[in-house]
């Protein structure tokens, strides 16, 4: 097990190095004007552009630019973004907010999704099953910005149950509840459906019948024997989803005014702010890799037949 983890961690090193270069090159190749918007609604004067390009080495060829960047990174400096702010500082701030949001969304979708899926799967065709199917269909088919704006308007502005926004550097957990629910809503629907079909299938399998025949309580039959096996695809999905929630929450972040990673990457790409984008995306790559490892380890825990040695 220990050996397995070390091997997996070592494998990550080339992946991370290669991905930073690829991301840097792609940002570099993108069309767009790094100084767009820096001077209001008109193009920047030549002197300003010249100084700006020299400061961020934008006038040098790509390998040289990347060389500057890599040199700094090795020394533990992620560089400055085009607002003259250290990327490391900005990222740690934004990842704190986004991680809170993502974890809350994950808990929300995991707990409710699995519960709904189990209840629906056990009584296939029953009232709860139909309710889950119809409501999840509705959630999946409505785009997230509609869900977001509607939730904000009714729950935030009109009935004032939750704060309508979660702005600032360190928004309170309470203000993140509504965005987390919106963010997790689509995945919740998928988890519920995934869980439902797995339970419905596994409940008919031989080992469940054996467990029942042994005289185990229904609680144990479902809670331990069926659930554990049915969770494997759901865990895979949630592991992948966590990474997606971290980097892809641009719409939700926009609606609720959250200073998160998604918006940062989006703005960085728009401005061709290579240094900002590479820092943020590399962090996401590492999160993905670690989540993948975690999911693989969980497989072993859920199903002893899957070995990690």
């Amino acid at each position: 097990m220990g050996k397995y983890i070390v091997r997996r961690l070592l494998q990550m090193i080339p992946v991370v190095i290669l991905s930073t270069f690829l991301i840097y090159a792609m940002v570099f190749a993108m069309p767009g004007d790094p100084t767009a918007g820096k001077c209001g609604e008109r193009p920047c004067p030549a002197a300003y552009i010249e100084k700006f390009n020299a400061k961020y080495h934008l006038d040098e060829p790509l390998p040289v630019q990347y060389g500057y960047y890599a040199k700094n990174v090795v020394q533990g400096d992620l560089g400055e973004n085009q607002y003259g702010r250290p990327v490391a500082e900005e990222l740690s701030e934004r990842f704190t907010v986004t991680a809170k949001l993502a974890v809350m969304a994950l808990i929300f979708e995991g707990v409710i999704g699995i519960l709904a899926g189990v209840l629906a799967g056990l009584r296939k065709g029953g009232f709860i099953d139909n309710l889950v199917l119809i409501s999840t269909l509705f959630v999946i088919s409505v785009p997230i910005f509609v869900t977001g704006f509607a939730a904000q308007y009714f729950l935030g502005l009109k009935w004032e149950i939750f704060p309508a926004l979660a702005t600032g550097k360190d928004p309170s957990l309470f203000s993140l509840v509504l965005p987390a629910m919106v963010l997790g809503s689509t995945s919740l629907a998928y988890i519920a459906r995934l869980m439902r079909s797995n339970i419905a299938e596994n409940i008919k399998s031989d080992y469940v019948r054996t467990a029942k025949a042994k005289g185990l309580t229904p609680r144990r039959v479902v809670g331990v024997h069926t659930l554990r096996n049915s969770l494997i695809p759901v865990v895979t999905f949630m592991g992948y989803d966590f990474g997606a929630l971290l980097g892809g929450a641009i719409v939700t972040e926009g609606i609720f005014g959250i200073n998160g990673v998604g918006g940062y990457i989006f703005k960085g790409i728009q401005n061709r702010d290579g240094i900002a984008v590479v820092g943020a995306v590399t962090a996401l790559v590492i999160v993905y890799l670690l989540m993948n490892l975690l999911v693989d380890l969980l497989y072993g825990a859920l199903d002893p037949r899957i070995s990690n040695d």
């Binding site: 904000q152 502005l157 309508a164 926004l165 702005t167 600032g168 609606i255 609720f256 005014g257 918006g263």
Partner: peptide, 18 residues
């Protein structure tokens, strides 16, 4: 000056009294 990244969020903040 409360900083917003999005004009819609800024407007919502006005409606919410922030």
């Amino acid at each position: 000056f409360k900083i917003f990244q999005d004009a819609d969020a800024e407007y919502t903040a006005l409606l919410a009294g922030e």
